[in-house]
């Protein structure tokens, strides 16, 4: 069970039980659906991006496993107020954290609280759960490329 305790950290379980920013957003200007057919995770992500390219609001709804729910919850907390142009770089760091060995991650510190997902790297089948909200976020951002760009 020691590895599993690494995966199911208290912070993660707390976000699973009480997901933050778990709500519809009728006035969102970006939205996308994410689906992980392996475990049936489904989520819908909402974004409100302002004229300066800042994520003014972000929320999600859906049903997923503990890892995907907590990942979505913590991602929304982490990204509110950040610029859309930062997202691609942050996702790359997050992706590296959950897939690559510890020593190959000089930049993990930039992820702050999201570091609790580092335990996912021991469970390759759960990588999709942890990254589903991020993939969905990218889809939401790319859907309308006019005012903002991740480049």
């Amino acid at each position: 069970m020691s590895d599993l305790r690494e995966l199911y950290q208290q912070t993660i379980l707390d976000h699973t039980r009480k997901p933050r920013n778990f709500r519809q957003m009728p006035d969102a200007n970006r939205a996308a659906d994410g689906h992980n057919p392996l475990c049936g995770d489904k989520l819908k992500l909402f974004l409100k991006i302002d004229d300066q390219g800042v994520i003014a609001d972000i929320s999600f709804v859906g049903a997923g496993c503990a890892i995907s729910t907590a990942s979505a919850s913590m991602m929304t907390e982490f990204l509110r107020g950040r610029r859309v142009v930062e997202v691609a770089g942050l996702f790359e760091k997050f992706h590296d954290m959950v897939t690559r060995p510890l020593e190959a991650q000089p930049e993990a510190a930039a992820l702050g609280k999201l570091a609790v997902f580092a335990g996912v790297r021991e469970f390759p089948v759960r990588v999709k759960c942890a990254t589903l909200p991020w993939h969905t976020l990218q889809a939401a951002i790319k859907k309308d490329q006019a005012p903002v760009s991740t480049e």
Partner: peptide, 15 residues
């Protein structure tokens, strides 16, 4: 209640 099947599967696998 309150536990997604995927988490059930992962934890019982650990056992």
């Amino acid at each position: 209640d309150g536990v997604h099947p995927h988490d059930i599967g992962a934890i019982v696998d650990g056992e």
